[in-house]
Design a protein around this nucleic acid. Sequence first.
DNA 1: CCAAAAGTGTTGCGTATACACCCATGG
DNA 2: CCATGGGTGTATACGCAACACTTTTGG
Lengths: 201, 201
Amino acid sequence: MAAIVRVKTVLFSVLEDKLQIYLPAHRLPQGIVEHGISLNKLAMENIKGIAGAAINQGYLEQLYTFSHPFEAGMGVDIVYYLLVGEGKLVRDYQESWIEATRISRNLPEYGILSYALQRLRWKVEYTNVVYSLLPREFTLSELQRIYEAILGKKLDKRNFRKKILSLGLLRSSGHRRVGLKARPARMYMFLRRQPVMVNVF
Amino acid sequence: MAAIVRVKTVLFSVLEDKLQIYLPAHRLPQGIVEHGISLNKLAMENIKGIAGAAINQGYLEQLYTFSHPFEAGMGVDIVYYLLVGEGKLVRDYQESWIEATRISRNLPEYGILSYALQRLRWKVEYTNVVYSLLPREFTLSELQRIYEAILGKKLDKRNFRKKILSLGLLRSSGHRRVGLKARPARMYMFLRRQPVMVNVF
DNA sequence: CCAAAAGTGTTGCGTATACACCCATGG
DNA sequence: CCATGGGTGTATACGCAACACTTTTGG
């Protein structure tokens, strides 16, 4: 006996300093599993329209598998979440995003979305996966804003810097962010743009 | 298009003070997903032969979903792990268990087993799920031996007691473990035999 | 009386938190 | 010269790890 297997993708990005989820028509992008394509691949294909070819630089993680035992065809949904940096996204889809802090109980996928958010918050507290939301070079303030957007709370600047620099994940790039009407900020880059476990927060 | 969906179950128990995995013929118990039965239910049915009817008192968690895109029928394996206390198991299956610390790279499911072990170790460090491996009443030493078996290392008795009692998960049952040739130990029980998040270790 | 396991406190160390002011630049 | 954000240090509280001896029972 066989079942219908779908892959759904929860796409997160930090846009305008706010953590947002890509939810066109209030539905998660999805696809049907077919012979010869892996689940990971399909999870990324689900959002190739908005994330283009650069998806491989994002961070992808399997979230959970749900079943619908009484649905016709015995549906199985394998859900992934994906982090993609603002700079890598196709624009023009503004109306398809929803702020993560504004997801409401009457969205059809509310359960999945809130679980995805919880898992994401968790993940950034003990890994370096936020690299996937940032360009190659960035300032410490930009990095801090990413964390604040994901965790949904303000962080102390001095403590943040002490902590993040002590982890040895970053190196100074030698450049400075100029052009703003303020003191130029030192720029940093991640030593490794692959997932690494550390204690961040 | 449809796929063949299996559910596999990694059954853990602490037997004779050692963390062990139920692996008859070096294979994980498994079943095929059919209409009208949930994944959880199937995960428990997979091992009803050895764990009998008392499975519901165990702790069940979905581990991960693997796919085999080029297998005939596009196989998908949804893997669960389950904790069941020694006292609830059918005996007579001694030869089907393997010590968790002795799993070797040439077992067919080595990848799954080592990941399950890692996730289990993780889980007991921030939840109370070890309740599922203990009888209703137990001594602190028995509880400590469960943690030591799972984590694979010795713990300091004084620090263990301080920590575990400070969490407020236990209450004294008033009874004592007698009959051993040593000082009788106070017995405790879990306030709640449902999963609760706490920081244990 | 001996073996076996139960039970009990203190100290040092490192990490997390709270908190405020001066600096460099653009306009 | 003013607005904007960059950059920096200290004091306190808390949790974790290390560590040894006395007590109670059964045989």
